[in-house]
């Protein structure tokens, strides 16, 4: 079993990410530290293949030809294998941090799985699909640990003036 991450982004400006960034900077005091905020639809594809290379090829086929994940008129996409994630490095004191937000009551993309397995003939190759939203931040901080801590503060809503991207009463989060 191989797991491939599929990240789907808008080609046009993402107004949700822009609005979230504006709220964090202008209303919540993160103007100095939040250098960039983008967003992607996140899918974890659990694939029954014998190698990571064949898993990546299958994931590309799913992204390109099923119309379930990517509309080429408005989306770009990126595939990531488990071994491809490198340790984040700083550029002039700015650190990349990813926050994955999922539904706390279940991450399974039921309808997509159903379509892949029952309608599109991938029953044997696709073991499962999970989904969420990936927030991709660039955070100015002294070190990566601090950047991750700031990212979590920005993300998790605890009070009216604390946190924006996750309501922990129905969502889960992970700092990747």
């Amino acid at each position: 079993m191989q797991m491939i991450e599929l990240l789907v982004k808008l080609k046009i400006p993402d107004v949700t990410a822009l609005t979230a960034a504006a709220a964090l900077r202008r209303r919540m005091g993160y103007g100095e530290v939040l250098k960039e905020l983008t967003r992607a639809d996140y899918y974890a594809l659990h694939l029954q293949t014998d190698s990571q290379q064949s898993a990546l090829a299958l994931a590309e086929e799913l992204a390109e030809s099923t119309n379930l994940f990517v509309n080429p008129n408005k989306h770009t996409y990126e595939l990531r294998g488990p071994g491809e994630k490198v340790k984040p490095t700083s550029e002039d004191g700015v650190w990349p941090v990813e926050v994955l937000v999922t539904d706390a009551e279940g991450t399974e993309a039921t309808e997509i799985q159903q379509a892949l397995k029952e309608r599109l003939g991938y029953a044997e190759q696709v073991a499962g699909v999970e989904q969420g939203t990936l927030w991709i931040m660039k955070v100015a901080a002294a070190d990566l640990a601090t950047a991750r801590q700031i990212a979590e503060e920005m993300a998790v809503t605890k009070a009216r003036d604390e946190g924006l991207l996750v309501n922990p009463h129905f969502q889960a989060w992970e700092i990747l």
């Binding site: 605890k158 009070a159 009463h169």
Partner: peptide, 8 residues
Amino acid sequence: GQVEMALA
């Protein structure tokens, strides 16, 4: 001021 619920 504390967020104690959600409208999910």
